[in-house]
């Protein structure tokens, strides 16, 4: 019989559809995994209400677990408490930086390229709902920064 720890392990191999360097577990959207009488129950929280990736996240979870032979599966949305960028795992911050996205921090983000603190907001919304667009005033490169939520 499969154990919850194994399910968590498999889910940590499922990339986020929009930021593939992060896994769903890194992102903090998997809120609970329960295994009871052979039924796997997973609670998933949306990041932003309007995030189009939410549907794909559920499909990806299902595809992964089916490929591992899980037959009885239930994926339930969990709205409360609301997702927060604080739930992004600390080790994921480094992965984001390497990918060119400034990880969330209160106040101005640091430039993910040169590390400078002198950055300016270009647009509150970036390429996806979860990011804002910034420019580094030291190296002049534009970059995306994770919005604090």
């Amino acid at each position: 019989m499969v154990e919850a720890a194994q399910i968590w392990q498999w889910l940590s191999e499922v990339p986020d559809p929009e930021i593939p360097v992060l896994s769903l577990v890194d992102l903090g959207v998997i809120r609970a995994v329960e295994v009871m009488d052979g039924m796997v129950r997973i609670k998933v929280t949306p990041t932003y209400s309007g995030c189009p990736a939410t549907t794909f996240i559920n499909l990806d979870i299902e595809a992964k677990l089916r490929s591992k032979g899980i037959e009885k599966l239930q994926i339930e949305p969990q709205i409360a408490p609301p997702w927060s960028t604080d739930w992004i795992k600390p080790e994921a911050h480094e992965k984001l930086r390497e990918y060119g996205i400034a990880p969330p921090r209160p106040g101005q983000p640091y430039c993910p390229r040169c590390g400078a603190a002198d950055t300016e907001l270009l647009s509150q919304f970036g390429s996806t709902p979860c990011k804002s667009h910034y420019r580094c005033t030291a190296c002049l490169e534009p970059f995306d920064a994770f919005k604090c939520l």
């Binding site: 209400s49 309007g50 919304f125 709902p129």
Partner: peptide
């Protein structure tokens, strides 16, 4: 930038509607 911002706000509002 405004186009992207408004599209994102619209998405948030529709998500809340759901």
């Amino acid at each position: 930038e405004e186009d992207i911002a408004l599209a994102n706000i619209a998405l948030d509002l529709i998500g809340q509607t759901r």
